[in-house]
Simulated scan of single mutants.
Amino acid sequence: MKNKSILEVCLSPDLGGLELYMSNCSKYLSKEFNVYNVISKNSKLEDYFKNDKNSFLLKRKSSFSLFLALKLAKIIDKQSIDIIHLHWTKDIPIVVFSKKLSKRKPKIVQTRHMTMTRFKNDFYHKFLYKNIDTIICVTKALQEQVNKFIPKNIRPKTEVIYLGAKTSEKLKENEILKFKNSLKVNDSFMLGLVGRINEFKGQHLLIEAMSLLKEKKLNIKAYIIGHAMNEEYLEKLKQKVIKYELEEQVLFVGFTKEPSKFMQACDVVLMASKNETFGLVTIEAMRNGTAVIASNSGGVLEVIDDEKTGLLFENQNYEDLALKIEKLYKDDILREKLAYAGQKKAKIQFDYDKQFEKVIELFGRS
């Protein structure tokens, strides 16, 4: 008999690492607990919870809605929820008020994926954080931010649990070749940038770097994989590609449910975000045995050891990014060495099952 009931909450309309992590939490925690899910109606997460009798759809219009909090409170009481696990920072007000409105008064655990940059010492934030029991931080740097910006007297307990990546099935050489042929890679060096298309993720830096690499006549193709969060930004990227005459070298693939296939096909996977809290894509690429280049900021510094398990480029500096790409383009031995060491580190420190066992253990004693 499973003796605890968990409510996974994510009302985000998008689909990225944060939302997919919520979906994975639901599946993994179901091994030990009764798990229910609340997602936003018409969100991209809906496909992941189709025909799930333990899932509820709520229509979210703003960061706070008393009506929505009341609906959530009814779900909490009806399903006898012991712990609410929330993921999207914007859901905090709705979740806290639903706890206040419920009869059960469940504990609240937040997995925080986003950086914290300002003090939470006003009355409103003090009220919110006083009602959260635990914050799971996905990096040590994030834990330091939480400890710095939330006053000690109302600060929830904090725990560091890294995100984990699974070992993907290794594709055979002929399968990779067939896949690359479908993408018209031909004999080009293949770069991949996987993630939501928005300015924060730095797709524009890759295009600028590619313009420099084209001038050097290097045979490189870059594939931008992910859905656009901002159509205006996507259009700017496409215009930039046209401006630099990179239509043959930079290709937009859109969202894929098989990112590991792309990663295994790539010679190098990039992470060009301005200040990524963790960078799940980075460890997924490492676990897939592909060399990685990432910006030297945020949680990435806890993942990549420069020149050992990957390469770091100066944050927001596309010229340095181009130099690091060129370095691995010209040095197969270094690229293979980084890929091997990166895969080894990701397997030891960022294993999917090991990290989720820590989450289960935390929920078991919460």
Rank of each mutant, 00 (worst) to 15 (best):
M1K: 10
I6G: 02
V9G: 05
S12L: 11
N24D: 15
N24R: 15
S26E: 03
K27M: 12
L29V: 03
S30L: 13
S43G: 04
E46Q: 09
K50C: 01
N51P: 11
N54E: 04
N54I: 04
S55K: 01
F56K: 03
K59I: 01
A69L: 04
L70T: 07
D77Q: 08
D77Y: 04
D82S: 08
L86C: 14
K90L: 01
D91A: 02
P93F: 02
V95C: 02
V96K: 01
S98C: 03
S98V: 05
K99Q: 10
K100D: 08
K107W: 00
K107G: 07
M114R: 10
T117V: 07
R118E: 02
R118I: 00
F119W: 00
Y124S: 01
Y124C: 02
K126M: 04
T134Q: 05
V138S: 05
T139C: 10
A141C: 05
L142W: 04
Q145H: 06
Q145P: 06
I150K: 00
I154V: 15
V160F: 13
L163V: 09
A165Y: 05
L171E: 15
L171W: 14
K172A: 14
E173P: 03
N174I: 12
N174G: 00
K180C: 03
N181L: 06
F189T: 03
F189P: 02
V194W: 04
G195F: 09
G195D: 05
F200L: 04
L205E: 11
L206D: 08
I207H: 05
I207R: 07
L218M: 12
N219L: 05
N219R: 10
K221S: 08
I224P: 04
I225Y: 05
E231K: 13
Y233R: 00
L234I: 01
L237N: 01
Q239N: 15
L246N: 07
E248C: 08
T256F: 13
K261P: 06
D267T: 02
M271G: 07
A272Q: 03
A272P: 11
S273A: 10
E276I: 06
E276C: 08
A285L: 01
R287T: 11
D306A: 00
T309H: 08
L312E: 11
Q316V: 08
N317M: 03
N317H: 02
E319N: 10
L321S: 11
A322K: 14
I325G: 03
I325T: 12
I325P: 11
A346V: 14
I348R: 12
K358R: 14
V359G: 01
L362G: 07
L362D: 01
G364D: 10
R365W: 02
S366V: 15
